[in-house]
Design a protein around this nucleic acid. Structure first.
Lengths: 185, 185
DNA sequence: CTATAATTGTTGCCTAAACGACACTGCCGC
DNA sequence: GCGGCAGTGTCGTTTAGGCAACAATTATAG
């Protein structure tokens, strides 16, 4: 199967949307193939030509999201810390259903957050070392990074939970102001 | 071509959405096939297997909308006048892009409004005659109907123009109260 | 004016998706 | 128990859509 074929892309996307939708109010194990193909308006046989079962779909979906997200973060120039969050917030805002799923989907291990944290920390420390012109990271800095990044992620998490009712700009501004008033040790 | 084939339906829908989108800020004659297939993510050859040109797409789209709308109005039991507006508002609310196009699309003749008026008036008079137990409609009643229907349509039109920012329920309530305080001659 | 970029219809081949049917499993209520 | 109902995989066939390439016609710019 050629994954660049329009039909394939559309099918994948439709199934992913269907799963994202279904997972918001149902556990992964309770979701049937039947249900998904109905939602996605796809023939059932087509589902099996792409995935083995619902878990397979979910795993590929999570994997895709992580890849895409990593790419999104790394592609962005991100000369400053703030730009990382800009990228994150942009990405989430552009993919609300996927974000809701990965942050609050029922019956999943939530290892996506860990992945996300790792990606952000890596980028964060990279910029940090570059700006401060240092070559290694102290243990203390890692603790501070954890505190700061997890804190910001929790803000974003709450933002998603609130269905993006707070304007995107306000969230960015909020994180900016935290960043600004916060002095690195 | 089997119009009940999923692929056909999806293609048609994608092209209709693309056109609806394009027409909001561009005249029909300025819209290219290329542009539409890009927006719809459809191969250009596929477009030509369904439509002769952009005008053809638009005409079929308008025709479909009118049919569907008529069906929607007539299917609803609509024992009372208010229910007509309920149906209309529901339909519009469920098809925001299409509605915006048909009401405010650039470079079209707006004959859709006339069609809509005709459908509503017919249903309106039907109920009227049934409720008042009369068999014919006086000239005076036609004038009153015009006044009332066009007035309500203009409210709905404004509602669409305002991007549905007023809650649906409020519009319904508004029209209900007008209806209630209004005594038939 | 000219080049060059963009759009237009149309074609033949290829393939992913649609479809319906199949036998099978599991579940629930009578 | 058993009938019915929903879901599961899988298969063969048909077909709409994808694709690339084509010649021809418009813009659009240099």
């Amino acid at each position: 199967m050629n994954k660049h074929d329009r039909r394939v892309k559309k099918t994948i996307k439709a199934l992913q949307s269907a799963l994202a939708d279904a997972m918001l109010d149902k556990e992964l194990q309770k979701i049937t193939v039947q249900e998904l193909v109905n939602k996605a308006d796809i023939h059932r046989a087509t589902f099996y030509s792409h995935y083995h079962d619902v878990y397979d779909l979910y795993e590929q979906m999570e994997h895709d999201a992580i890849s895409e997200f990593t790419k999104f973060i790394n592609d962005n120039p991100a000369g400053h810390y703030e730009n990382i969050y800009n990228s994150i917030i942009d990405y989430i805002y552009e993919n609300p259903a996927l974000s809701r799923l990965l942050f609050f989907g029922k019956g999943i291990d939530h290892k996506f957050q860990e992945h996300m944290y790792d990606i952000i920390e890596e980028k964060y420390l990279e910029i940090w070392m570059q700006e401060e012109n240092i070559s290694s990271v102290s243990e203390e800095m890692l603790y501070m990074a954890t505190y700061h990044i997890q804190g910001c992620l929790s803000i974003i998490s709450l933002w998603i939970k609130n269905n993006f009712s707070t304007p995107k700009e306000k969230i960015i501004q909020l994180i900016y102001s935290i960043d600004a008033s916060w002095n690195m040790p």
